[in-house]
């Protein structure tokens, strides 16, 4: 396999920013080969889609760090992460059978520790986000909707002020800070004095 090119580094930067074109491109270039590998190794079409998307999220997470540089091509990275995710899934299911067919095609030995680390970091982050979202769901209205509108749906303060009936963006912003304070209490379990 080849090392990442400049254009791949640009693709990665666009992916990190959540660019749709770059995402579509990476999807198109890699989904078919990875999903057929997964299907050949005991996965269904739904598993294939899930695993590939998870691998994309791992890459997305890695790419958030601006200093991140791939040491291999995007395709190789996604393939390796997908394989690891799939083996992990099989391991947790414990008893999935492995087909006896004989694969004569190329078999890359990329079962490196680096990929495992990336996946571990990813699952820790997932757990962290889940806790945060649980706290967000317990926070009560209007805070829940307001914080979601701002952070999840990327709305700006003007839109939020209009949607939630605040007289101006400044008021909405103060409300947002109050909500963050409540979220912090829930999330970190801090007692207010």
């Amino acid at each position: 396999m080849h090392s990442p090119t400049n254009s791949e580094q640009q693709q990665l930067a666009a992916l990190a920013a959540g660019g749709r074109a770059a995402t579509e491109q990476i999807y198109q270039q890699n989904y078919h080969i990875i999903s057929s590998w997964l299907i050949k190794n005991g996965g269904g079409p739904v598993d294939a889609a899930d695993i590939f998307q998870e691998a994309m999220v791992v890459l997305f997470g890695k790419a958030q760090d601006e200093s991140f540089r791939l040491t291999c091509s995007i395709g190789t990275y996604l393939f390796a992460i997908s394989k690891h995710l799939w083996y992990k899934k099989l391991q947790t299911q414990h008893k999935s059978p492995v087909f006896l067919q004989d694969r004569t095609g190329e078999e890359d030995n990329d079962l490196g520790i680096a990929y495992d680390d990336d996946i571990n970091v990813h699952s820790e982050r997932e757990a962290h986000y889940e806790q945060l979202n649980n706290a967000l769901d317990q926070i009560g209205e209007p805070c829940r909707s307001l914080l979601k509108a701002y952070y999840h749906h990327d709305k700006n303060m003007q839109e939020i002020a209009a949607d939630f009936g605040y007289t101006n963006p400044e008021n909405a912003k103060n409300q947002k800070y109050k909500c963050l304070t409540r979220l912090r209490k829930l999330f970190y379990g801090v007692q207010a004095k």
């Binding site: 986000y129 967000l136 990327d154």
Partner: peptide, 12 residues
């Protein structure tokens, strides 16, 4: 965290 979580949610 909440920023990252939101960004990832949109990406998903």
């Amino acid at each position: 965290s909440i920023n990252g979580s939101g960004k990832q949610k949109r990406f998903r």
